[in-house]
Every structure is written in C-alpha cells, then in structure tokens.
C-alpha cells in the first residue's frame, strides 16, 4: 500500500463528507414542502375577520379596580393554556396588570390623579407597526402577519431570546421549563407550549380566523374595542377621533397598536 497516512485520511474525510451530504441535502429539501397535489387548496374561512392593522383601544375609565381586570386575564390565560408558574422568575403571561408608573415609565409620574395612580393598567403585546422583536428574530419564528398581528411560530423558535431583549414592553415570556404540569386545566382546543420557546399574546388569531373577537375584548363589557386601524370607518378609529389616547413608549418609534384612553 503506497499511500501516505495524510492522503489516506484526506480521502477518508472527503468520502465521509460525501456520504453525509446526501441526507443533509434531503433534509433541506424536505423542510420547504408545502407540497399540494393538483386540485388541493388551502383557504381562509369566509367567517374570518380581516384587517390591515388590528388595533385595540382600552378605555381605562371603564375599569375601577384590579377585580375588573382579573376576568379578562383569566379567560385569556385559560383558553391559551398559559401556565401559572410557581417561581416568579419563570412566570409566563400574555396579558397582565401593571401600575401606571410601570406601564408608562416615561410618562409624568409625580402628580398623577388619584384614580390613575391607583388604577391597574392592562398590558399585553402591542403588536407594533414596526416591531423590534421581528427585526431581531434570527429564524423568522416571530413575524408580522398581513393583518398586523405579531405572531409566534412555536415550531420554529430556537429559544435564543433575542426578541425578549428587543421588546421594550416586557411582553414576552420564555418557557424556562416544561409548562404542562403548571396548567391547572388544559383547554383541548388550543395547544400548549414546550420548554425552550418564547411566547406572548397572539391577538387571538385563532378566534379571528373563525370570526370571533379576541377573548379579552369579549370579556371586557365594552371597555376594550378591537378593530382595523387603517379603516377610517372602524370603531377604533371613531374612538381615537373622539378621545385623547396614549400609547406605551411612543418615542421609541415602534408604533404600538394598543391605545389607552385615560
């Protein structure tokens, strides 16, 4: 055998690479597959609600205390299988309450009217017009949908948590451990999450798809209005015309789609 060890190893290495390349290439090809046979279609329901940019107006005057907010939070967390973690570090929340000074830390805080100082504010994902989290995500696991909803693809999230660093509203939660044991009652109509992925409010995309309003809107007795920001005839636009509203950290240019009447 007249061959040096070096050339022998090089040959072996190249062969191994060649053998490995084939399945790897197959893997890449398989992942793209939307594959539909002729005649097959994927459709939206006729009942689905449509918009150019979904937005929410929260009339905080209609809430008096934390008790008024609890049912909204509960219904959201219940239908979306949001676990209640015992350890506060691992907390997961889609919609929650914050005091004014935390919801609006850059706003005037010293001389607040008593009502506002004591009123808890609802906070959730702002479904920004220019979402920094979408900019940061390295896999497009979080993306902005045509109707303005900033959505999570839990199948694709690698759990790098860049989106959480990017979000200026603390709207995102990470599954530091398997959430299932911490869901009191599993809603069979919605999946749970697995450990290692980020999650947040989805503006009830699964309800809009079948023609229903978001759960918190439904539970709010008219305190929350939901509609298309780009449609001048929409209810949210009417409210914005008639009332002075504030948004969280507007100066950052993210364009939050949650408006607060205070």
């Amino acid at each position: 055998m007249k061959r040096s060890r070096r050339s022998f190893l090089q040959l072996a290495g190249v062969s191994a690479l060649g053998l490995g390349l084939k399945p790897a290439a197959g893997l890449f090809a398989a992942s793209g597959g939307h594959g539909r046979a002729p005649g097959e279609k994927v459709l939206k329901s006729e009942k689905a609600l449509k918009a150019k940019q979904w937005a929410m107006v929260i009339d905080t005057r209609k809430f008096e205390s934390a008790e008024d907010l609890e049912p909204l939070i509960e219904v959201c967390h219940k239908i979306h299988n949001v676990p209640s973690m015992k350890d506060k570090r691992h907390e997961i929340k889609w919609i929650w309450e914050e005091e004014f000074e935390h919801a609006f830390p850059t706003q005037e805080l010293r001389f607040l009217p008593e009502r506002i100082a004591q009123l808890p504010f609802l906070t959730l994902c702002n479904h920004c017009e220019h979402p920094p989290c979408v900019r940061a995500c390295p896999t497009k696991a979080t993306f902005k949908r045509e109707d303005g909803i900033v959505l999570m693809d839990f199948h694709r999230c690698i759990g790098c948590r860049f989106c959480m660093a990017a979000c200026p509203y603390g709207s995102r939660s990470f599954n530091f451990r398997d959430p299932r044991p911490f869901i009191e009652e599993i809603n069979p109509d919605y999946p749970t999450r697995m450990k290692g992925v980020v999650e947040k409010c989805n503006f009830c995309a699964e309800r809009l798809a079948v023609g229903r309003m978001p759960a918190c809107v439904e539970a709010s007795n008219g305190a929350i209005t939901f509609g298309d920001l780009e449609d001048p005839e929409s209810e949210v636009r009417a409210l914005l015309r008639e009332n002075y509203t504030i948004r969280r950290k507007q100066a950052l240019g993210t364009g939050p789609a949650i408006y607060y009447i205070v």
């Binding site: 940061a136 896999t139 690698i158 759990g159 290692g196």
Partner: peptide, 21 residues
C-alpha cells in the same frame, strides 16, 4: 444558551438578514 438547541440549523434554513444574530 439556546432553549431549543436541536433547532439551531433553523438559522441557516430560514436566513434572516435583518437579524443581527
């Protein structure tokens, strides 16, 4: 540091030039 390390190749499968990562 990744929460789902077995999906790390998603960074190559779905290249996203707007992400600094």
């Amino acid at each position: 540091d990744l929460g789902q390390p077995m999906r790390v190749l998603n960074v190559l499968l779905y290249p996203t030039p707007n992400s600094i990562l």
